[in-house]
């Protein structure tokens, strides 16, 4: 394989991993629990900026060509961990404002506003994260390893992304199919029932808001390290919509489904548009990408609202079949 092809494949794999991790974060919030987080992209951005600031070193060290709030030069896993912590903390703050007292579609509206405000602040307060120019020269942890070829370093980063995606996937399965996951699905399906069982729906929403925010931040951190730059134009509020489409297309609440949805929507559409015979006008291609994304959402909501790989339901009923409840069920079915 030529170096260019290798780089192309590596890029696609990294983008898929990053988007799958992000989409899982949103799936936990929107798919499993039913929280409409229209500020989702803000948490990805928070992770990207944090990872950048934790690995760039002090702003003055790079000759002062870019300005940002604080800078540290921490070794490999710390910037990613820091990003997740900041993403979770920011989620906690915004969740406390929005999730406690508002109806779900109204929450969405308010979060949309918050997402836009954050972009305006990041663009105009240059001292925060270098304004609309954004941060650049963000170190890639694999590239700091000396004695390796550029391609090996690239594949090493791909390996890191795949490994993190698998770890997050395993954790997702553990969380979603645990008793706690049932509480979350209960919040989505019947809030009153959950409250009647003595669980706080608001607390559950806030918890998934924080976990999802941390996952969004992780995906943002990886993306920023891979691209090496991060600017407000990367996280305008419509970008959140791409993640929503990924979750809807894949199947709300379904872990494997959402992974497929993320790969198809966030990476597949963009690649497909490149090969369409409509010329190479970047504005037209971008517009077409958005139109396809929008249409796909409408088509799926109409024809297949459960998504490509629907969430498995009544999983626990099968297990119950051998027990007491099953005999009762058979009795009642027999009479």
């Amino acid at each position: 394989m030529s170096a260019a092809t290798q780089y192309y494949i590596a890029t696609i794999v990294v983008y898929i991993c990053v988007n799958v991790i992000g989409a899982w974060g949103l799936d936990l919030q929107f798919g499993v629990t039913g929280v409409l987080n229209f500020a989702f992209i803000l948490f990805q951005a928070a992770g990207a900026y944090t990872a950048a600031m934790l690995s760039l070193g002090p702003a003055s060290a790079s000759g002062g060509f870019q300005h940002y709030l604080v800078g540290f030069k921490l070794p490999f896993p710390l910037p990613l961990i820091g990003a997740m912590l900041v993403g979770g903390a920011l989620s906690a703050v915004i969740g406390l404002i929005t999730l406690r007292r508002l109806r779900s579609d109204y929450q969405a509206m308010v979060m949309l506003v918050i997402s836009v405000v954050a972009t305006v602040v990041a663009e105009s307060v240059v001292g925060l994260a270098n304004g609309s120019a954004g941060l650049s020269l963000i170190p890639n942890p694999a590239k700091s390893l000396t004695g390796l070829t550029l391609q090996t370093q690239n594949w090493l980063f791909v390996g890191l992304c795949v490994a993190l995606m698998l770890i997050v996937g395993v954790l997702m399965y553990g969380l979603v199919y645990s008793p706690y996951g049932r509480v979350l699905r209960g919040v989505r399906e019947n809030e009153a029932a959950v409250e009647a069982m003595g669980r706080s729906a608001t607390r559950a929403r806030l918890q998934v808001f924080i976990i999802g925010g941390a996952l969004a931040a992780l995906s943002g951190a990886l993306l920023a390290q891979f691209i090496g730059a991060w600017a407000p134009s990367e996280w305008l509020y419509p970008e959140t919509f791409v993640f929503f489409t990924a979750v809807i297309v894949g199947g709300r609440g379904s872990i494997s489904g959402v992974a497929i949805g993320a790969a198809l929507v966030a990476v597949g559409i963009q690649q497909a548009v490149q090969y369409m015979p409509i010329g190479s006008d970047p504005t037209l291609l971008a517009a077409l990408e958005w139109i396809i994304t929008g249409l796909l959402t409408l088509i799926f909501l109409w024809l297949r609202p459960q998504g490509l790989l629907p969430e498995r339901r009544r999983r626990y009923l099968r297990r119950v079949k051998t027990g007491f409840a099953a005999t009762k069920l058979q009795e009642s079915a027999g009479t």
Binding site: I291, T293, G294, L298
Partner: peptide, 13 residues
């Protein structure tokens, strides 16, 4: 809840 997503899809399109 779903209608919010429908309206944002229409806006994007």
């Amino acid at each position: 809840f779903g209608m919010v997503i429908v309206t944002i899809s229409v806006a994007v399109i």
